[in-house]
Every structure is written in structure tokens, then in C-alpha cells.
Amino acid sequence: MNTQKLTTVQNYALVLLRVLIGWHFLYEGIIKAYNPSWTSKGYLLSASILKPFFTWIASDSLVSVVDTLNIVGLIAVGASLLIGMKVRWGCIAGILLLLLYYLAHPPFPGLPQGPAEGSYWVVNKNLIEMVALWVIYQFPLISVFGIENLFLKKKTTTI
């Protein structure tokens, strides 16, 4: 790993990226959590590839579990990135969630694109956010901004 020290501006830029992604995840989770009629069923059933898998998790017996896991996952990832706690775990969970969203409706040529606010070919916002989370994974920067700092500091002070 590159051990070269980051400049302050680089630190801030990476922390800002982490906070904004966390913000996005958290808001998506909250909106779903407070809307009792929200379900991922339609999104999953309209999946363009890996149809058997997505249809299976959209089945009546599974979909409510999937919905709950999704909401809990979104909020947990959002909270982790935003407040700076277990950021690397948050990144891994976030990447897995985004991978599922990406695979359900990948912007591959020849596949139906469904409603989208832009034009995409192979690369879409889910993929970009996924890679951004990978970057955050490399630079969690809890010491620059994060509640985990509390425990780090405490540890160092008690020692």
C-alpha cells in the first residue's frame, strides 16, 4: 500500500466523498423505512439478467426479509460512513448492496434499461459509487473525521 502521507486537502476531499456517499445511503434507507408500502418486489421482478435469482428473492416468502435487510443495510452503511465508525465494514456492505442493484439492471447493450435519468453504457452511477466505496475502503480516514476517533484517542491517551 502507498504509505505516502496525504495532504490536508486530499484528506478533506476523501472525507467529503465518504460523507456524501454515507448521506446518500442513509437517506435512501430512511425514506424506505418510513414508507410502509415500499417494497423492492417490482425492481427485483423486472431484473434483466440473473432472473431466477432475483425472482426467487422477490417471492412472497422472502421479499419482506429482503426488504428489511435492504433498509437495515442502507441505514447501517450510511451511518457508518457519515459518522465514521467501522468504515471499512460499511464499505464492504455498501459495495455488496450496490453490486446487487447493478446486477439486477445492468446497463449492458441490448438489455432493457427501464426508467433512468441519464444514458448509460456498462458504467452507471451504481458502478461509480461502488468504486468510490473501494477508494474509501483504502482511505477510511477515521482520524480526520469520525466518531471512532474517540476510541482511538482514548486508547492512545490511556496508554
Binding site: V19, G22, W23, L26, Y27, G29, I30, I31, A33, Y34, N35, G78, A79, L82, I83, G84, S143, V144, F145, G146, I147, N149, L150, K153
Partner: peptide, 21 residues
């Protein structure tokens, strides 16, 4: 640097909850 995330977290949560509400 340590606790700055908490008010942000609260603001996002409150905003999402009140909008849906």
C-alpha cells in the same frame, strides 16, 4: 472531527422521516 458526523446523521434522518411523513 470526532462528533461532527452525528448532527449530519440526525439532519439526514430527520429530513427523510419528515418528508415521508
Amino acid at each position: 472531527k470526532t462528533l461532527g458526523g452525528i448532527p449530519l446523521f440526525g439532519a439526514v434522518w430527520y429530513s427523510g422521516a419528515s418528508l415521508t411523513g
